Amino acid sequence: MFLGAHTPKLDDKGRLILPAKFRGQLADGLVLARGQERCIYVFTPETFQQKVSLITTAPLTSKAARDYVRVFLSGASDEEPDKQFRVTIPPALRQYAGLERDLTVIGAGDRAEIWSTPAWEAYYAAQEDAFSSTEEEVIPGLF
Rank of each mutant, 00 (worst) to 15 (best):
Glu100Tyr: 10
Glu137Leu: 04
Pro91Asn: 10
His6Gly: 08
Ala64Pro: 04
Ala122Arg: 14
Ser133Ala: 11
Phe131Ser: 12
Ala58Lys: 00
Ala92Gly: 05
Thr61Leu: 12
Gln84Ala: 14
Arg101Cys: 11
Glu136Val: 00
Glu121Val: 00
Pro8Val: 10
Ile55His: 11
Arg70Phe: 05
Phe43Pro: 02
Gly98Phe: 08
Gly107His: 03
Lys63Pro: 07
Val87Arg: 06
Glu37Val: 03
Gln25Cys: 00
Ala65Gly: 09
Glu137Val: 03
Ala97Lys: 01
Phe72Ser: 10
Thr47Gln: 05
Arg15Ser: 14
Val69Ala: 15
Gly29Tyr: 06
Ala27Gly: 07
Leu18Lys: 02
Asp129Gly: 12
Ser53Leu: 05
Glu80Tyr: 05
Pro45Lys: 03
Ile17Phe: 10
Ile106Thr: 12
Phe143Thr: 15
Phe2Thr: 09
His6Leu: 02
Gln49Ile: 05
Val52Trp: 09
Lys21Ser: 15
Thr7Trp: 04
Leu142His: 07
Ile139Trp: 08
Thr117Leu: 07
Leu3Trp: 06
Gly109Thr: 02
Ala5Asp: 12
Ala76Ile: 01
Asp82Thr: 05
Ile106Met: 07
Lys63Cys: 01
Ile40Gln: 01
Asp129Tyr: 08
Tyr96Met: 08
Ala125Arg: 12
Glu79Leu: 01
Asp12Pro: 02
Leu32Tyr: 09
Glu37His: 10
Leu32Cys: 13
Pro81Thr: 04
Leu103His: 04
Gln25Gly: 13
Gly29Asp: 15
Ala122Asn: 15
Ala5His: 05
Ala125Tyr: 10
Trp115Cys: 05
Lys63Met: 12
Thr57Phe: 05
Ala65Thr: 03
Ser74Asn: 14
Glu100Ser: 14
Met1Glu: 15
Ala33Gly: 14
Glu113Cys: 01
Glu113Arg: 02
Ala76Trp: 06
Leu10His: 10
Lys9Asn: 14
Val31Glu: 06
Gly107Glu: 01
Pro90Ile: 06
Asp102Glu: 13
Gln25Thr: 10
Thr134Trp: 11
Glu80Cys: 07
Gln50Gly: 00
Arg34Ser: 12
Ser77Leu: 01
Gly35Arg: 05
Pro45Met: 04
Lys13Leu: 14
Glu128Thr: 09
Val52Cys: 06
Ile114Phe: 01
Gln25Asn: 11
Leu103Gln: 07
Phe43Gly: 06
Leu93His: 00
Ala65Tyr: 03
Tyr96Ala: 08
Ala33Lys: 10
Ile40Met: 07
Tyr123Pro: 02
Ala126Thr: 13
Pro59Leu: 12
Asp12Leu: 13
Leu3Tyr: 12
Gln84His: 05
Lys13Asn: 15
Ala125Asn: 14
Ala58Glu: 09
Phe131Thr: 09
Phe22Pro: 00
Phe2Glu: 08
Glu79Phe: 00
Gln84Asn: 09
Val87Pro: 01
Arg15Lys: 12
Gly107Arg: 02
Thr134Phe: 12
Asp28Glu: 15
Gln25His: 14
Thr44Pro: 00
Arg38Ser: 10
Ser133Phe: 03
Leu26Lys: 12
Ser74Leu: 14
Gln36Tyr: 06
Leu54Glu: 15
Leu60Glu: 12
Arg86Asp: 04
Met1Gln: 14
Ile40His: 03
Val105Lys: 01
Arg38Thr: 05
Leu73Ile: 08
Glu128Trp: 08
